[in-house]
Computed example of a mutant assay.
Amino acid sequence: MNASIYENCNEEHFYDSSEFRYSISSIFYSFLFIVGFPLNVASLCFLVRGKKRVTEIKIYMISLTIADLLFVTFLPFWIDYYYRRGNWIFSSFMCSLWGSLFYINTYNTIFLLALISFTRYLAVSQPVKVAQSSQNRRGVALTALIWTLTISVALPILINHKDHINKTNGTIRCFEYYQEADTKIKLLILHLVMLLGFIVGFGVVIANSVLILQRLSMTKEILRPSQRLKTRAFRMVLAVFVIYIVCFLPYHIVHLFWTLLVLNFWESKNCTFRKSVNDVHQVALCLMSINCILDPVLYCFLSRRFKQYFKELTQSWRQKCTIRRSSKPEAIQLS
């Protein structure tokens, strides 16, 4: 009897215990899609069509936006999955494609934010040199390196797409219920590599943020950045920290424990504990997905032009909606 309870806790009960995830996650991801898609489209249009010269930090922002757009575009598949209470109706390849895009977006964002923080540190510590030089080649090279690295790590997921589909009690699960020992070991190694990537990225962000704040606190005789540069640098430090702490830190803290439990490398007979870990993991997963709408907020901190552009775009949409809703000619003329 105890063995039966233990087996149920390890397999079915572990996933199905977090019942709240189906309703809450479908609503939450729907919100992210409705808000994130137009927001990132507007961001990409501004970055690509902007009259301002292409800079290293702009290259990183464009790459961030593309990664966020890919993530948001495929959100309807995940919304449908949770709406059907964890039943995947699409192909195994689409399941792996979605999972690959999820990891690519997450770790592209982590590494690109680290590069943005480093670039901002250079702008604060060497403002004259940075203003007189163009580091576009470095930006393109590092961006290409990050995309190559994240795609290479996610590629095995796409190649072995059938490993991530499992049929249980008439329900087809996506990225749930791993049974093969060989697959479990590969997944454990993959998640450890991702954890290492987060630690490296977060370490770079912390180091650059500390250096930026130190430079900003120096006297004017040593360093003379403009007040505008100080404000932008401080806001960038704050924005990047918020994204890391809100989106990525909770997920990576709980994800290692969750991975060990779900793959049964950490055998615990306490079903209540396993349920709690799964519950927290589901919440952390939602929090990490918020980065797709927080990244454009970062642009607002770094660019006054984007803030003005988005404000004008919002006002234009509101005016068009007002005109369409108005049925009287007088009302249209007044609007």
Rank of each mutant, 00 (worst) to 15 (best):
L195I: 10
I212D: 03
W147Y: 14
H161L: 02
F111G: 05
F111H: 14
L216E: 02
W147S: 05
F202K: 08
R228N: 08
V128N: 10
R137A: 13
V210L: 09
Y178D: 08
G197A: 03
N160P: 01
L142H: 08
Y103E: 11
R224S: 13
I185W: 11
G201E: 02
S134M: 03
N166D: 08
G170P: 02
G201S: 00
I185R: 09
I185K: 12
F175Q: 00
F202C: 08
L145Q: 06
Q214I: 07
R215A: 13
K129F: 13
Q135K: 13
W147N: 05
W147E: 04
E180M: 11
L195T: 11
C174T: 00
A207P: 03
Q126V: 04
L223V: 09
M218G: 05
D163Y: 09
L192M: 11
L216Q: 03
L211F: 10
V130F: 04
T106Q: 12
G197K: 04
K220S: 13
Q126G: 03
T119E: 14
S91D: 01
Q135G: 07
L145V: 10
I116R: 04
A144W: 05
N108W: 08
P225C: 11
H191V: 08
Q135S: 12
G197C: 09
L155Y: 15
L149S: 14
L155V: 07
F118Y: 15
L192K: 11
L196I: 14
L122C: 12
L223H: 12
A123W: 08
R228L: 09
V193E: 11
I199N: 03
K186R: 15
T150Y: 06
R138A: 08
L213K: 13
K220A: 10
R85V: 06
V153G: 03
V210Q: 06
S133E: 07
I165L: 06
I159Y: 05
W147Q: 05
C95T: 00
T109Y: 03
R120M: 14
R228I: 09
L112D: 01
N87L: 01
S117H: 05
Q227T: 09
R215I: 04
R173Q: 00
I104D: 05
R228D: 13
R85Y: 13
I159R: 01
R224D: 14
H164S: 06
C95A: 07
K220I: 07
G99H: 00
V200R: 02
I157P: 04
N169M: 06
V140Y: 15
G86A: 01
I212F: 02
Y107I: 02
E180D: 15
F198Q: 07
Y107M: 00
I172D: 07
C174D: 01
F93P: 06
G86T: 01
I165T: 06
V140N: 04
